[in-house]
Amino acid sequence: MPPIAQYVFNGVVTGGILALPAVAFSLLWRLLRFPNFAVSTYLTVGAYVALVLNHGVRASIEMAWLSALVVTGAVALGVDRIAFRPMRSRRPFSLAIASIGVAFILENVVRFVWGNDFRSYDVPVSRAMSVAGLRIGREQLLILGVAVGVMALAQAFLLRTRLGIAMRATADNALLAAAKGVPTERVIAAATLGGGALAGGAGVFLGLDASIDPLMGGGLIISVFAAAILGGIGSAPGALAGALIVGIVEEVGMLVVPPTYKTAIGFVIILAVLLVRPTGLAGART
């Protein structure tokens, strides 16, 4: 069995994790018209929330994951209220800069409390399965399954529920939606809560798949950005597809370039997409 299949499988798992923040980032960008650099740091927040519960009160990883969803969503909502809401009418770049400031604060609060050490969850050790020559971890399957399920739920929410439809209307044309009676601020609050929860949950997955440290989320911002741009800003299925492509290319790319250049691969993807379509792929017509 060529090792490349193993890299592709690992890439699919990475992509599955990446898809959650990528969808959050993409939808929030479309809704609020600025790239929120704090989204990838919400992964770190979620991972540490779960760590506290998992190590502190011996919560099972499932309970810890659910709590991470809730707490990270609440953190994202709080950040929006304090930092972004007073700036809604400013040019997008001011908000982008503020979001970098927020990311920096969150990351360093984590560092202040837990330090720079790499940590991991207390979960029962399980042996990787071997299927057709591939090494497949139980956690990897679990992560992939839950990630796909969550994405399907998110998509169903956007297409089927009143709030989801209102969200898409506001993303499309905020003024028109507001004129039609869509409560803009409530839609933004719901999207922020949901986006934060998606990213927080992904943080726990990332902690299970790799390890936990203060930079784990922030270091992914370029990959998240690449996935969102590849999928077309504002499209949930697009962001999922983009995340899978970025995940696979990053992992398979390790065969060609040293692993330390992983971030550079995401950057090259961004450049390639933007040079072909300077406004980004489909969905970015704003």
Partner: peptide, 9 residues
């Protein structure tokens, strides 16, 4: 907004 990520990257 794209310029932001390209220069950061």
């Amino acid at each position: 907004d794209y310029l932001a990520i390209v220069t950061l990257g």
